[in-house]
Write a protein that binds this DNA or RNA. Structure first.
Lengths: 237, 237
DNA sequence: CCAAAAGTGTTCAACATACACCCATGA
DNA sequence: TCATGGGTGTATGTTGAACACTTTTGG
């Protein structure tokens, strides 16, 4: 039973290891997904997640960060692993195991950068084009995971600019969970977490009255990784 | 920017792809983990998760099932992906990306099979030996994920025999979440799900009075993948 | 008869939900 | 002045949490 252990390693197949990132963005109203046009001949009209290859001496997470940076110039985005996708038929060119990550960014904050990237565009989360390989399945899983996490953790704030209004925050949660929420109940519940600091300024230009801006209480945000909301309607993962 | 796409594939490094399974078991009282002694010379005294290599033409999940079957003879276990672990230093022999799965089984149901497997043993979940590579981290993440899932889904039942008592079920939840639960509140909440069918038999031999046995309502169990319990005390994942 | 585990109800507090009107402003 | 979106309070039902005694029976 016990064979030479180097032999055991030598006999095994090796796979290409790819990284694909599902990048969620929020523009204050709608939840969106950032896609790129695949730069290879056979699939040059197909939209795709941000993908690239694992390099020697980097961790999976480092690779995911590097690829997002190389493709669209974004650094320090919130990235979290979704899982590995390894169906032998998923990439017709060669057997590839892809590790998917999802990222959360605020659209207006980065718009100038992304605008200059050729063949990258935001799509409404519920109206996506055809996607490469098994990327559709990856997106579906990422949406579910986002729901789950957002129900218990304040990760939703990663999607917002530094200063935001309560109606924006409510739009975000409604987009994530695909529900409508009573604004009175929403504001009471949200403010009761004490994670928000009300500013003196108002957002101008969108509504006539203007809405008060809030920012995160950075201290509490770091410590309070407890269950804090309960908007999750039907956690099916 | 657009280079030949086959060239793009050819330039990349390839990695070994391993699968490691975290196998949780429950014996009616304690939550346990199934480990094997690593069968290679350099590490022959180190305990390890159930691991093996990805074969050509199988999916990741098929491979994980095959490996669990080959090592301990178990089929049709509940398996769910935990994620990929790819630190370049995690396996000192050669660069390996490992995809971890966790499994839930009922200990007494399979004890006869596992007893005959050389170098496999159950360990209490809170008293584990040193583990190979990054397996300790994998176990830690699996415990967190188990908490999360068990809070919303009836997956806990995978760990129980077909017939079980309410005190057993309560022990299980207490072991998963590391808390104590009031038995009156527990039984009321659990029975209110209508997922349990009370049998006429009692469990004999453990307590003097004997406890009524229950079984799952298979119909409802399949449909009712909704939030159904709320024992989750502090979901930190 | 006694030790050990099983079983069972009530009260109180906290939270979720439902619901409607006035305010501020730009056009 | 009016249309649009922002902001606020209350009442009701549900749910979670805390809490102690009786029952059964093997040893």
């Amino acid at each position: 039973m016990k064979i030479n252990f180097l032999e055991q390693y030598r006999q095994q197949i090796k796979c290409l290891v790819a990284l694909d990132s599902i990048i969620f963005g929020f523009d204050g109203t709608d939840l969106k997904l950032l896609l790129v046009k695949r730069g290879i001949e056979t699939e040059h009209d197909t939209w795709s997640l941000m993908g690239g290859w694992l390099a020697p001496n980097e961790t999976l997470e480092m690779a995911a960060h590097r690829i997002v940076f190389e493709l669209i110039g974004l650094e320090n985005v919130y990235l979290e692993q979704l899982g590995a996708f390894g169906d032998p038929t998923r990439d017709p060119v060669e057997r590839t195991v892809s590790v998917a990550y999802f990222a959360l960014i605020n659209v207006p904050n980065y718009d100038d950068k992304i605008d200059h990237v050729f063949d990258a565009a935001w799509f409404p989360i519920n109206d996506l084009p055809e996607l490469l390989f098994d990327h559709k399945e990856m997106v579906a899983q990422a949406k579910e995971k986002l729901k789950y996490k957002a129900a218990f953790h304040p990760i939703g704030f990663e999607l917002l600019p530094e200063k935001f209004t309560l109606p924006q925050l409510q739009n975000l949660y409604e987009a994530i969970f695909g529900v409508t929420i009573d604004k009175r109940n929403f504001s009471r519940k949200m403010l009761s977490t004490n994670l928000l600091i009300k500013l003196k300024e108002k957002q101008k230009g969108f509504s006539k009255k203007g809405a008060f801006l809030y920012k995160l209480d950075a201290e509490r945000y770091k410590q309070d990784f407890n269950a804090f909301l309960n908007f999750i309607p039907n956690p099916d993962i």
